[in-house]
Every structure is written in structure tokens, then in C-alpha cells.
Write a protein that binds this DNA or RNA. Sequence first.
DNA 1: CTATTTCTAGACCGACTGGTCTAATGCTGT
DNA 2: ACAGCATTAGACCAGTCGGTCTAGAAATAG
Lengths: 197, 197
Amino acid sequence: MEHSTYKKLVVTAAGLFRKRGFSATGVSDILRQANLPKGSLYYHFPGGKKDLAIEAAKWSAQQVNSLIDEVFSETREQGGDFIDAAIRFCERVVEVYHAEGEWSFSSISTILLEGSDEDLEFSELARELYASHKVKIIEQGEAYGLSEEEAFWIGHKMMLFLEGGWLVSRVTGDTESLCFAVDCMKEEKLITGKRGF
Amino acid sequence: MEHSTYKKLVVTAAGLFRKRGFSATGVSDILRQANLPKGSLYYHFPGGKKDLAIEAAKWSAQQVNSLIDEVFSETREQGGDFIDAAIRFCERVVEVYHAEGEWSFSSISTILLEGSDEDLEFSELARELYASHKVKIIEQGEAYGLSEEEAFWIGHKMMLFLEGGWLVSRVTGDTESLCFAVDCMKEEKLITGKRGF
DNA sequence: CTATTTCTAGACCGACTGGTCTAATGCTGT
DNA sequence: ACAGCATTAGACCAGTCGGTCTAGAAATAG
């Protein structure tokens, strides 16, 4: 199987879906940007747009999971604690946003939760992918010696800051809110320091 | 001018746009749900779908602003501090989410930031409406005797929790994350209590 | 009552959408 | 060389979209 075309479609689609949402992105937009003909899409994704969106969402979620692994492992090796890693993770998200100007943290909902009222396949996948982030964070928490509860609390808070910050940043058009999210996490460090995480 | 038809269109459209997004919502969906013919829509909104979306977004933002005013004033009258009001506000958002099952806090981005790459009219309105929330919160902060900076810090944090919590709740399909946002604000109370807000 | 305006009603239209289909093209092993 | 499969290429199609248009109902004015 020729992978470069397949991959190109997934990556291009992920970018467009994340930026504009599922419905607002036309198959032709994706094909134009990827510089590919229609035949290729329906050869690689017989299920069409939906199939492509599913793969794009999976790929996006995997990217986030990889970033979690990367940042949390790196920080741990450098002697930082769990909160340090969480701060670093937020900073990395800001960096990516700055660099690419479009990278969506909330890719799951943007891609999958925008179609019809009740697309079970989409909403179930969305749940599943979000759960995978949660698992990744708790796994990393355990590597830091944290209980599931501790890791969940701080990890969940980090997620809220990031999702919220990203969403607001998209509205305001700058990265102020996303940077604010980083500041919030830094403040967490002071509090949780006292908790002894 | 007959207002009931106009209002019905705005409210119905706001609901659908918030739930599904601008592009995923067809004019016919709105008309079907509102039980109105096409002619009425284009009579009241000559600019069509876009016009309607703008009014729907304004209306949604106004609802949020009213809720801010209501909750913060009420809490102040009852002798609560600014954080108490913020907690109460988060709780109210959860209540509304529970009750209506769809009320979107992030209505601005859902309605306005989903169309084409660069719709200036939409994105400028989005910024403007979001700014109006910020102003409302700072106004309320001043009524509580807080400096703009203090009100901004806690208000912004509250917004991130709510936006993030709402977004995640939409993915997971429950209100856990939104309730978690309330818990986060309650924790804030302890911290900021020490700051003396 | 009639005249006029306001609004509803929905048939209709062109543009565009996602999706299909077949012809052609490369690429493989023999 | 050939055959056979994998992939590209894009013309084409049916359905849906947002939007227009005219007919007439309902309300208001004289």
C-alpha cells in the first residue's frame, strides 16, 4: 500500500477539520490543499468523508498522546515533578499554537462533534479518544509516583486550562488566554507544592 | 414589526447553531424546528443565514451577560464575596446544562468561528462579544471593590474552567468536567482567601 | 367597505456537495 | 515483452444547500 498519499490525506484533512470543523470543510477543499484527485480519496477511504474524519481524529489524538509522553518523560528524566511537566506541557502547546497558528488542542470535538444530532460512531470515538488522553496522563502520573486520584486532579485541571485557553484564544485571535493557562498552571505549582505532590 | 416570529427564529437558530455549529445547521433545519416557512426567514433577515447567525450570537452573548449580572449582583446582596459569586456562577452554568442538556457556554465560537477561513464580520463580532463578557465581569469586580487586575485574574480563570469544562463535558457526554470546574473554583476560594480578595 | 402595508407560504432555481464510475497510468513479477 | 494489480485521474451524477420570487393571507388605515 502506498502510504504517502494516504498519510497526506489524513494530515491535510486533520488540519482543515480542526480549523474549520467537519461540516465546513468540503472534500474538495481537502483534495485541493493536498493536491490530489477525488479518486485517491475514495480509493483509500471507501467510506468517504466520514472515514477520513475518523482517521484524522485518531491521528490528531495520537499526536496529543505522543506529546504527553514526550514532555512528561523528558521532564521526569530531568528531575522535574509532575506539575513541572504539566507546566512544560502547557508551554509546548502554546509554542505549537504560535508556530503553526492553527493547531487545535480540542481537535476531538472540532472534528467529531459537529455533525448531525446523534452520530453514534463519531461521539463514541470522541469519548474513546478523550479517554485515551486521560489514561496517558494517569500513566505518567504513576511514573511520577502519584496516585491515580492525584494525577487525575492535576491532569484534569491542566486539560481544562488548555481546552478553555485554546478556545478563547481562537476567539480573541491572540495567544493571551493560552499563555494565561500557563500562568494558571504555574500558580498550581505553588499550591500543590504545599500538598506535596 | 411582529416580534414573535423574529424572536422564534433567533432562539431556534441559536439553539441549533450552538449544538451543531454554523455549517452543520441548515436553514431548513431551523425552519422545520421553528415551524416557519422560508419566506419569513428572508423577510426578517434579508441577509439570510449569516444575518440570522449574527443575531443568534448576539442574543446568546446577551444571555450570558445577563446571567453574569444576575448571579454576581445577587451574591453581593447576600453578602458573598467575588469568588463566592464566581462559584455560584459556575454552579448555575452546570444547572442550565443539566436542565437544557445543550446550553453552550462557548456559543460564540460555535456559532461564529466555524465558517470560512477568514470571515472578518464573524470573527470581529466574536471578539467583540467575548470582550463584552470580560467587561461585565470587571464591572462586577469593581462593584465588589476589586481592582481591574484582580477581577480579571479570577474572572478569566473562571472562564477557562467553564469553557474547558463545557467542551470536555460535550465530549464525554456527562457533566463530570463541568462539575469539576465548580470544584476548581471552590479550591480557588481557599487560595484567594489568603490573597485577601 | 377598499387600499395599503406587513408578513406568511412554499414553489422554484442555480450552485455546490459528497459520492460513483470508468479510463488510464504506473508498478510489479515473470 | 507481457499480464495483473494498485493507484490516479477527473468527468459525471443525484441530492441538498442557501437564496429568490411571486401569490396571497392578515392586519391596519382611511
